[in-house]
Design a protein around this nucleic acid. Sequence first.
DNA 1: GTGTAAATGACAACATGCTGACATTAATCC
DNA 2: GGATTAATGTCAGCATGTTGTCATTTACAC
Lengths: 172, 172
Amino acid sequence: MALSAPANMPLCGGDQIPVRLEKREVPVHSPKRVLFLDLVLSLFRLNGLLIAEGDAMTKQLGLTHARWKVIGAIALSSAGLTVPGIARVLGQSRQAVQRITDVMVEDGLLLYTENPKHKRSALVTLSEDGKETYNMLREVQDPWAIENTEDIPTEELETTLRLVRRLIKKFN
Amino acid sequence: MALSAPANMPLCGGDQIPVRLEKREVPVHSPKRVLFLDLVLSLFRLNGLLIAEGDAMTKQLGLTHARWKVIGAIALSSAGLTVPGIARVLGQSRQAVQRITDVMVEDGLLLYTENPKHKRSALVTLSEDGKETYNMLREVQDPWAIENTEDIPTEELETTLRLVRRLIKKFN
DNA sequence: GTGTAAATGACAACATGCTGACATTAATCC
DNA sequence: GGATTAATGTCAGCATGTTGTCATTTACAC
């Protein structure tokens, strides 16, 4: 992706002249509306950066973000997932997930296993290769997660996760 | 997108049988690493839901998420943006933004205006049509932002925004 | 100034994601 | 049980996004 912007820069490009359709010095103490829209824009940006991080991290494993997202969703699920279930967890269309999982089954990373609760909709599980890949994924992902949170208080992470889930519930 | 999952469901599909590669009852009080990975997965999901929200909201305006993101980034910038600048704000590649802005200039929503600071890299600005579109966008976006934050304390929004920006800075 | 590195525009190839449509299966209501 | 509604698999068309590459311009170190 190759990004290199000043980081807390939701409102300026850093190298341009004023246009100013709206005044917005936002750091703190701005109305909730502005705060929220800023948050949304920042979330878009963080989303892109997280995908870039993951891709860089998993390049050596031959994974792409579409793939490690699926593997991660399956591995973190405690109950087994169908294709539409993965799509719901990832906030994507079931068709997009179906295409990825089809290829990953062909590649031997995933298996479609019988679903006792649904004749047509198979459970998507990790094959032996898939589990091995997941373990290698963990080997890079865990240190990354630890490293990037060591200076962040647990309470802030919890507050953020709670808010994010609250928003997810709203938009579901 | 058509999503309808139980909302705080990072770990189960809701309609499957156990697979359990890893135990993870997460609601609170889990190690930071797990908390963080949960947050990342939730952010992916929220990202998808926010895009779906925006698309539904702007359908009548003939906008797509690629377009309202660009319009939003330009409108919220206080200093004017170049194509690579928009890409940095949105966490995308400059090529993807270039393609969208080229089409939007053709469609009369944007203008490339001379950049005194850079001979080749034009500033992207809203045309009259673009400003009108942005105003219509605001008319649906503002009530949406207000409505979705009325039950959320400002402090939580600020904490979350601060954390998100902190992560952006890390991954930049 | 000069040379080197970085940023930018342009193009191509490819991966990913969405919507719409249709048929089939599952769930629900009566 | 039967009918209706919802969920799922499948396919097609299209929009979006990424990487790679190359030429040009800008920025920077010396």
